[in-house]
Nucleic acid binder design. Structure first.
Ligand SMILES: [Zn+2]
Length: 444
DNA sequence: TATGCCGGGCA
DNA sequence: TGCCCGGCATA
């Protein structure tokens, strides 16, 4: 599944991606993933200019983001920044959802220019809405890093959330995942509730931190945001867009799926994500989790809220866990058998390996003492000896610790009486051999 | 299949 | 306790 997820998405994405020429959308998705992979250093590959900007942002911090491309933004006055944000938001909204929603006047130009839009968006708006959540989200997705992306995702929501819906919005679909993540993080409940609704296909979700309200109409959601969250202010009018997301069935599904995954990711997942694909970003998160492979065995402690996801993760865990299990098993094994001395592996019970170890410790040593010569001298005594020794050995072995390990010694290479003398000369055999016991004359 | 032995039974 | 053998594991 997991694997599929990412790929599929990528596959699907292309269309979408292509559709929105804007770097934005493309960016949103990618950044997260990349960010994960290369935490800081990498400057993203330059392909999608804007997108990459996000990366730096994460690292730098909310305000900084702008920068990748242009430090200038950082310097800007808050107001200007806000303006930018608004602009960006407008553009995004227009692109993603409905051109009609708000006519972003010139936004378009601004948007297209990759550098600006990201920066603008992220800086101000973010802080308000979901500072904390984003972080949490990050955690889940795959690594702390993601969280940053999450924040970016925040923004992404604009583009991203998009609903696959019929036409235009397609591009947005990419972004949707982000939202899903955040949402999950912040409000897992809400998501659940929403999903059903989302099934519709075009649902607008309120992104306000504590609010998960879902409305079917953009107007309604805006109204909701404006009235309940923003209050009535000039900015509020425009920022509404920032606080709601459009969700499509697809988006929802994907989002839901991924959500679980994220938790597991943490350390390794990132790698996966990266490898998998840039676009994956969120979706990738899901997939990775799905793949689960690596994940985080030990650390995952925080799987976040993810009480649920954690368990699901077994996949990954399983692997990681497996490792631990292995050790455990091995240890147990040793305990069981080795207690005595020889490291001979438990398996011994069955066969060969044990030979050296235990033979040495127990029986063999004993026999070695009584030189062959003696044995030859007389069989009778030998018989007794054999019995005694045999008993002794058993006793020693048994009492001490290893009961089990009643392994059979592996057959020694040395020729025994039987072989040496053959059936014909059975008389020549040592008593033990005659009795079908361990040969004393030719001990291993 | 032959060999080596354990485990068990019998006297 | 001594002797023998069934049966298993291994080569
Ligand atoms: Zn012998």
């Amino acid at each position: 599944m997991a694997a599929m997820g990412p790929e599929d998405r990528t596959g699907t994405r292309p269309d979408r991606m292509a559709a929105p020429p804007l770097g934005q959308k493309a960016c949103t998705p990618t950044p997260p993933s990349t960010s994960h992979s290369s935490s800081t250093p990498d400057t993203p590959r330059e392909g999608p200019g804007p997108c990459w900007t996000n990366l730096p942002l994460q690292i730098l911090g909310p305000t900084m983001h702008l920068c990748t491309g242009e430090a200038a933004f950082s310097f800007r006055s808050p107001e200007s920044v806000e303006m930018d944000e608004i602009m960006a938001a407008m553009v995004l909204t227009s692109l993603s959802c409905s051109p009609g929603l708000q006519s972003p006047p010139q936004t378009d130009p601004g948007l297209q220019s990759p550098p600006q839009k990201d920066p603008g968006l992220q800086s101000p708006p973010q802080t308000d809405p979901e500072p904390a959540p984003s972080s949490s989200a990050d955690m889940e997705c795959g690594g702390g890093e993601l969280s940053d992306s999450g924040s970016s995702g925040y923004w992404s929501w604009d583009h991203g959330n998009v609903s696959p819906s019929p036409s235009p919005s397609i591009t947005e679909a990419d972004g949707s995942p982000d939202e899903g993540l955040q949402m999950d993080l912040d409000q897992g409940e809400e998501l659940n509730a929403k999903k059903p609704k989302s099934s519709f296909r075009g649902v607008y979700k309120c992104l306000w931190p504590s609010c998960g309200k879902v409305l079917t109409s953009s107007v309604g959601i805006k109204r909701h945001i404006r009235l309940l969250h923003l209050g009535s202010s000039d900015q509020s009018l425009r920022e509404e867009d920032f606080y709601y997301t459009r969700i499509c069935c697809d988006a929802v599904d994907s989002a839901s799926a991924p959500a679980p995954a994220p938790p597991p990711s943490q350390s390794r997942p990132q790698a996966l994500v990266q490898s998998s694909a840039p676009h994956l970003s969120w979706s990738s998160c899901g997939s990775p989790s799905g793949s689960g492979l690596q994940i985080p065995p030990t650390h995952r402690s925080r799987s976040n809220s993810s009480s649920g996801p954690g368990p699901s993760r077994p996949g990954p865990l399983s692997q990681s866990a497996p490792g631990s299990f292995w050790q455990i098993h091995s240890e147990h094994l040793y305990q069981a058998c080795s207690p005595v001395q020889v490291p001979v592996p438990v398996p011994v019970g069955s066969r060969s390996p044990s030979v050296h170890g235990w033979s040495v410790s127990t029986s063999v040593s004993c026999h070695s003492n009584p030189p062959v010569t003696k044995a030859r001298f007389r069989s009778v005594s030998v018989g007794e000896q054999w019995l005694q020794q045999n008993r002794l050995t058993t006793v020693n072995a048994a009492s001490p610790t290893r009961n089990h390990c009643s392994y059979r010694k592996a057959r020694g290479e040395a020729k025994k009486c039987r072989k040496v003398y053959g059936l014909e000369q059975k008389d020549q055999w040592c008593t033990a051999c005659r009795w079908k016991k361990a040969c004393q004359r030719f001990p291993d």
